[in-house]
């Protein structure tokens, strides 16, 4: 097996697409992430949302809330957009593209959380949005510092040189952590009361895959 970048980090390289020095590449690692992003995007596209059980207070009676598919059209759309942004983030071979995809994931996550009408959830979405916006600073800052010190943003060119400054790597990680904070805000917003499981799951998928990808980038460059 030929290891990508001659580094024992992510297994064999499968194939790559060359655009000049920007090379989107699939290693075993990124291909696995890609596959999972596709699977969850398809689940979000084709699953019907679950029906929430509600108990009538003070009695034994309970009923299942009916949700019409058109009520969740926006949430489904944003979830698919989020999945697509995740796909981009896990395969791109360019650090700036990665940061842009990360920011897009942030925006779509805001959308998924905010498409619930509850005041509580909207509040959480707003707070999360502010964190995601602030996280743009270290995210873009990290990428900019890498470009300024090494003269390139291509992971393919940077791999194994160790030229990227450690501060830039830390900033990049901080940025991704900020963009991928959404699951915690979901927990905070008691999203148990909101419906649309396949879409809410997308928030989780995107932030975890983003985190996994940034760990790989930081180790490789």
């Amino acid at each position: 097996m030929i290891r990508v970048f001659d580094q024992g980090i992510e297994g064999a390289g499968l194939f790559m697409i060359e655009f000049g020095d920007i090379v989107p590449y699939f290693s075993v690692y990124t291909a696995t992430l890609f596959t999972f992003a596709i699977i969850f995007t398809l689940l979000a596209t084709f699953s019907i949302p679950e029906k929430q059980m509600d108990i009538i207070f003070g009695g034994d009676a309970y009923y299942a809330k009916e949700i019409k598919p058109q009520d969740l059209r926006f949430q489904r759309f944003v979830a698919i957009a989020c999945g697509t942004a995740t796909l981009g983030a896990v395969v791109t071979g360019d650090i700036f593209n990665f940061t842009l995809f990360a920011a897009m994931i942030g925006i779509t996550n805001i959308g998924i959380v905010a498409s619930s009408r509850s005041h509580h959830v909207l509040n959480a979405a707003y707070q999360y949005g502010i964190v995601a916006m602030i996280a743009c600073v270290p995210l873009f800052g990290g990428a900019a510092m890498i470009l300024a010190t090494t003269g390139t943003l291509s992971i393919w060119s940077l791999a194994g040189i160790g030229a990227a400054p450690i501060l830039a790597k830390i900033l990049l990680l901080l940025g991704v952590m900020g963009e991928g904070m959404a699951p915690f805000y979901i927990g905070k917003a008691e999203i148990t009361r909101a419906q649309g499981a396949p879409f809410i799951l997308m928030v989780h998928v995107s932030s975890l895959l983003l985190f996994l990808r940034v760990v790989e980038i930081i180790l490789v460059i």
Binding site: M104, I107, I110, A114, G129, C136
Partner: peptide, 10 residues
């Protein structure tokens, strides 16, 4: 563009 998109969404 990305930042303005986030700002508008917020």
């Amino acid at each position: 563009v990305v930042m303005i998109a986030e700002l508008m969404a917020l």
